[in-house]
Design a protein around this nucleic acid. Structure first.
Length: 186
DNA sequence: CCATGATCATTA
DNA sequence: TAATGATCATGG
């Protein structure tokens, strides 16, 4: 992966700090995409995501949750789940699992790529929709600031600001959801 | 400057 | 280890 990043002129490490988005950018380049920042699927109808996995008792476990899309407070209250950016991205998700070997790891390898077809899992869709509606309702009744990462069974509204005072939020997929999307055995 | 990529830090 | 909140590099 590190070599590919160099090939595409993607900075992976700079001045003692890591570009946390390098893996994502590299994958997007591999898929022939550009690393833009539009709030829409970045492929021609699909969304590419990656997350680091590590082993717990010999079983691959997602190290982190993953960001789905930013939350626009006003937009959230007015938009039903099936018209949201969140759903637009989830339904066309192409998920990449990569290995994790510690901080500033440049040798991660691609473990598995899985496209997710939510249509095969109607129950799951309904539960995710319920989470979305819960968050949406809470935002409408208690305000955007009342949202926390504790909300939701499959998805959550965590802080995701640029960091320097400004704090916005985004939809994140919990580990349990990741496990539903991609099955990694050993 | 901000949205997007995803990881880092802290606490329990 | 897991959960939650905070942060950083990049490109437009």
């Amino acid at each position: 992966m590190a070599e590919l990043a160099v090939k595409y002129n993607i900075t992976t490490f700079k001045d003692g700090k890591q570009n946390k988005g390098w893996k994502g950018f590299t994958l997007e380049h591999l898929a022939g995409l550009s690393n833009d920042n539009k709030q829409a699927p970045n492929g021609l109808g699909f969304e590419l995501k990656s997350t680091a996995f590590y082993k717990v008792k010999g079983i691959w476990t997602p190290k982190e949750t993953f960001a789905i899309t930013m939350i626009n407070p006003a937009n959230l209250v007015e938009t039903p789940f099936f018209k949201s950016h969140c759903w637009e991205k989830l339904k066309a998700l192409v998920y990449c699992a990569v290995s994790w070997n510690g901080k500033h790891n440049e040798k991660s390898e691609l473990l598995k790529v899985q496209s997710f077809d939510f249509l095969e899992s109607e129950t799951l869709i309904k539960e995710i929709e319920a989470d979305y509606e819960f968050i949406r309702n809470k935002c409408a009744t208690q305000g955007f600031a009342a949202l926390t990462g504790k909300d939701g069974k499959w998805i959550q509204a965590r802080t995701k600001g640029a960091g320097h005072g400004s704090t916005s939020r985004a939809f994140y997929a919990r580990k349990t959801l990741i496990q539903e999307i991609i099955k990694l055995e050993e």
